[in-house]
């Protein structure tokens, strides 16, 4: 029984497309090297106090995080426009839109709530 199903699997894999995306050693290594680079630099920037301005450092490490997320998506999660007939990319774009609305909306609304609060109600915040 198991021998039979095993043969069927081999047959299936040879004549049809493999279930998931095909990955390569060079792809994984490239992604890994890029990730090490993109992780090490933000840690160095913060731990070594490279920039005196906080805002400069924040912007740079956020940019590095964004690039690293893209690297992971492409080299580890094998994202592209073709997989599953484009449905994975479509759902990812939809999720990113929702993510953007959730994050920016929450931060924007709550920031103005804090700014417009009566001074007497502020509990010693800066």
């Amino acid at each position: 029984m198991s021998e039979l199903s095993h043969n069927h699997d081999e047959h299936h894999a040879d004549h049809h497309q493999e279930e998931g995306p095909h990955s390569s050693f060079s792809g994984y290594m490239l992604g890994f090297m890029a990730s090490v680079f993109l992780t090490a630099i933000p840690f160095w920037l913060v731990m070594g106090d490279v920039f005196s301005s906080r805002n400069t450092t924040v912007l740079i490490i956020l940019a590095f995080a964004l690039v690293q997320i893209l690297v992971h998506m492409v080299y580890f999660l094998h994202m592209n426009f073709q997989s599953e007939g484009g449905w994975t990319m479509l759902s990812l774009i939809f999720t990113v839109v929702l993510l953007f609305i959730t994050l920016s909306g929450s931060l924007w609304v709550m920031y103005h709530m804090n700014v417009n609060m009566m001074p007497s109600m502020m509990s010693g915040g800066s």
């Binding site: 992780t39 933000p42 840690f43 913060v46 490490i61 590095f64 995080a65 998506m73």
Partner: peptide, 15 residues
């Protein structure tokens, strides 16, 4: 999970 951790270490720990 590794992708989520990129957000965690950047936004929570580094910032």
């Amino acid at each position: 999970l590794d992708v989520v951790w990129i957000g965690v270490f950047t936004i929570v720990y580094l910032m």
